[in-house]
Write a protein that binds this DNA or RNA. Structure first.
Lengths: 331, 331
DNA sequence: TTGTATGCGTTATCAA
DNA sequence: TTGATAACGCATACAA
């Protein structure tokens, strides 16, 4: 069996309480006893059992990250940030994927909450139900959302309006006037990007034209190829495409365009979204909008810990990060 | 405060023990009591506290994954497999990154072990020390290694010899005779890939020539570009490069080659390794070796759970997966 | 400065 | 079939 606090106490000839106080750096322990205890701890290779500690403290020293999946570029980058932020805190991270469960993660969230599996939770791209938020508030477990706006809790997101605005302004500056916009189906992100697109046009006296906005479903490469064909069939002549639906789709468009002899960026300028790993390696390299996901992960973790430890208030702030336009050669 | 088993018991007018038996599906409970208890549980929204349960059971129902980082393609794919395998088991996953700690993960591993933070551990690309393995054995916490060979515990790996062998055989079949090999610095993987390379040559009566084997350190795109230049300076004339150091480096080589007017694959055939996300999107698309990382993640998780639950013996088997050659246009 | 006693939420053993 | 009691490993209030 593993060595417990009792074993250490017995060995030193004190009570478990004393050992506990040494471990928890209580000041009211004589140097003499402390030294003896510490020595025994080392010799016996005693490590405190987190479960016992958690039970009495009502705190697990774990945080949970809940997301639809952990295999996307998006979650990977965020995770990287969290990983960096953990550093040498004594928190650990648990992962909960909602695949095969309800879409808004309620099931996983409730299990974490009521099973006391974590002291705080970060949700990624999940529309957390109001009801669930209330339950978390009631139990005093902080919840932070990344990307999706959830009411009454802190939200870490990127300024999609600005991201799109910057991209389109850039294209206009490059003398493009007939700019197609590709976005995903009506989620918040998509709508904000449409707004940014419209704003940039307006500022440059270009009329917003709804027939130049196209919707995409899967955000895939193939869809991009199909989209190019679709674009060509339109009576509109485009000199640029801002594919706010992601780089993969943008690259699909680009590949199909190239295959049909359209010169990029001369004939058609293309700007993507996400700064996917691939973007730097296509020919031509893809100009795109980068979201500071790593920073967001870091921030979310830091904020969560601060809130757990009551160093910061648990409010409904929205921390908005600025996306960056990465200018390469496709536009 | 959260509702506990006691609250439920009081409400129904039984003892906590009875409620516990209901929860744990004991058969020796009258239907009548069971119904009443179940009803109360639902009404009061009682959820068992995992920490309390863990303490008495000596089991956390969590598994830990320890890796140098969770941001690589490699760990991402493995994680995806684990994620899929978790499904509706009632295990959860904890992540432990060894960044900023000792290189072989001993620190994290010991903390997990002695802190009783997990019922089993999967290590990724980590040379676990013999000593640590023994400690795990002593405490009865199973440990499974992915990729790295660790003695006395189950290992899930890919057959690197075969991966390289297939790639080189393919090149030879395509009439290439002067094949450069790029590998990483002396880790097990690299050496196995050299073996596979040599084996394919031998089988085709091509003499193995050590001066055609080159080492790379960072496995980066830039290194690939530099490598191409380096290759050109050599007196050897190559008609193919098998870049077993990964797709990124392979793509670096390819880009630099293209920039210098070398035709791919006519003048120089290129085969990469890993089937990185990018590989399908380069021009020409990269022929490469795919490792079934997803399957490996699944297998590791399933095996670990089986071992934890004593449904399978905890041995030192080596589960070797077959890599697949993904034939595209660069070779 | 240290020891004693108690409790965290649950399960398991035994008795009723 | 159910209840009483102890135990898991630890931390803390209070007593000494």
């Amino acid at each position: 069996m593993a060595v417990t606090i009792k074993d250490v106490a017995k060995r030193v000839g004190v009570t478990p309480a004393t050992v506990s106080m040494v471990i928890n750096k209580s000041t009211k322990i004589s140097d003499h006893t402390r030294d003896k205890v510490l020595k025994a701890i080392k010799e016996m290779e005693y490590h405190p059992n987190y479960i016992g500690r958690s039970l009495v403290k009502g705190k697990s020293n774990a945080i949970a990250i809940v997301a639809p999946f952990f295999s996307s570029m998006f979650s990977m980058e965020v995770l990287k940030g969290v990983e960096a932020a953990i550093g040498n805190t004594n928190y650990s991270v648990m992962l909960f994927s909602t695949v095969g469960k309800d879409a808004n993660g309620s099931e996983s969230l409730r299990e974490i909450l009521y099973g006391k599996r974590a002291d705080g939770v970060i949700v990624l791209s999940l529309k957390v139900q109001k009801e669930v938020v209330n339950e978390f508030k009631k139990e005093g477990i902080p919840l932070i959302s990344i990307e999706e706006i959830v009411e009454n809790i802190p939200v870490i997101k990127v300024d999609n309006i600005k991201g799109a605005y910057n991209a389109v302004s850039y294209l206009i500056q490059k003398k493009r006037k007939h700019i197609a916009l590709i976005v995903g189906k009506q989620c918040l992100d998509a709508e904000e990007r449409v707004q940014g697109y419209a704003k940039a046009l307006a500022e440059n006296q270009i009329k917003y034209d709804a027939t130049k906005v196209f919707r995409v479903k899967e955000h895939s490469f193939e869809e991009g190829k199909a989209m190019f064909e679709f674009l060509m069939k339109k009576r509109n002549r485009f000199d640029a495409v801002f594919c706010a639906a992601g780089d993969l789709t943008a690259i699909g468009i680009m590949e199909e365009a190239k295959a049909r002899g359209v010169k990029i960026p001369e004939d058609l300028a293309i700007v993507g979204y996400d700064d996917n790993y691939i973007a730097g390696f296509t020919t031509p390299a893809l100009t795109t909008v980068r979201q500071p996901l790593y920073q967001m992960g870091r921030t979310a973790f830091d904020l969560l810990i601060s809130v757990i430890e009551k160093k910061e208030p648990y409010d409904n702030r929205i921390v908005s990060f600025e996306p960056a336009l990465i200018s390469r050669t496709s536009a």
